[in-house]
Design a protein around this nucleic acid. Sequence first.
DNA 1: AGGCTATTTCGATGATTGTGGAAACAGGCA
DNA 2: TGCCTGTTTCCACAATCATCGAAATAGCCT
Lengths: 119, 119
Amino acid sequence: MENTDAIDVFTALAQATRLDAFRLIMAHEPHGLPAGEVARRLEVPQNTMSSHLAVLTRAGLVTAERHSRSIIYRAELDRVREVASFLVSDCCGGRPELCQPLVAEFTPCCTPGATSNAC
Amino acid sequence: MENTDAIDVFTALAQATRLDAFRLIMAHEPHGLPAGEVARRLEVPQNTMSSHLAVLTRAGLVTAERHSRSIIYRAELDRVREVASFLVSDCCGGRPELCQPLVAEFTPCCTPGATSNAC
DNA sequence: AGGCTATTTCGATGATTGTGGAAACAGGCA
DNA sequence: TGCCTGTTTCCACAATCATCGAAATAGCCT
């Protein structure tokens, strides 16, 4: 993940309305939620919410799919995982054993293909 | 973790210089790095870096400790874990089995006391 | 005390961002 | 076609933020 991608993600989540929107959308995985419903539940005008959803979309945190007249937004949880891994990727100067178990949950032991908790 | 705490963390990381600074400090765990050294390595004036480090500190992402004339900054990786857990805490409306394995690395299986990968 | 180094605080400037009214666009239905 | 609903784009204003020169603070040394 590029540095600028991570900044887009953090910028997207660094705003109260957007953070609420993302968490609301995430709470509705895997069904998703239409844009207007997000605006209504958070009591924000539709056009304001629309621009916030656009920021979340550009950051890769949600995806939009048209369904008749509504546009359904769904969370991209892989993106969260990517950015978390990015943050701790070169922790401790490449000697991860130094900062275990702080990063234990982010890196090898739970990723697909790992064989044990012993990383 | 409060909603506002998460926003402070994301705001702190949503800026190129601060993200670089945090990752640099994290790369020097557990020894830490003096403020001037962070500024010098990232080629940023000391006072500019000082205000950025203040933001990171207020967000709880780093801690400062005076050591003679220098002020040593260290990363608070627990804070990263906290905010990651916060993000996925009510994923899928409290039915986490619906979005496994997306959140597998964040939650139970690798936390202290867990007994297996089978969460 | 005086001088030196490391760091922070103050203050001002230019740039970016959140917000929401108004208008435009897209799709369904009569 | 015309009308309605859901959503986005355009635009402008107020507020917040990043940057950095200058001054202030903190600590060590002679």
